[in-house]
Amino acid sequence: MGGETELVVEFLEIAITSVVFLKGIYPAGAFERGRYMNILVHKARHPQLKHYIHHSLNQLVPHFQQGLVERIAVIFFSDEKIPMEKFLFKIDMNHSNKSYEQMMEHAELELSLRSFLIKLSQSEPLFKTVVSQDLRWEITAYFSSPPGDNVDMWVPTHIKQWKQPPIITPIKSMNIEPLSVQLYIEHPTVLET
Rank of each mutant, 00 (worst) to 15 (best):
V8F: 04
M84P: 00
R136V: 08
H55N: 03
P170K: 15
R35D: 09
R33F: 06
Y26C: 05
Q59T: 01
E177N: 10
K23V: 02
R136P: 03
E101Y: 05
I167E: 04
W137E: 00
F127K: 15
Q133W: 14
M93G: 06
E192F: 01
H54P: 00
N38E: 14
E124V: 09
K23A: 02
S132Q: 15
P83T: 03
P27R: 12
G29V: 13
Y52L: 01
K23I: 03
A28V: 14
P188G: 01
D149E: 05
S112P: 05
I72W: 00
D134Y: 14
H51T: 05
S145T: 11
I171C: 08
V41Q: 05
P125G: 11
A141Y: 01
P27D: 13
I75K: 04
F89L: 08
E110P: 03
K90M: 13
G148R: 09
F31W: 03
A141N: 05
K160A: 10
P188N: 07
K119Y: 04
P47A: 04
M103G: 07
L88G: 11
E32I: 10
K90T: 14
S56E: 05
L40M: 14
H106F: 10
N150G: 04
K50P: 00
Y100V: 07
F31I: 15
I16G: 05
E10I: 06
S78E: 10
F31G: 14
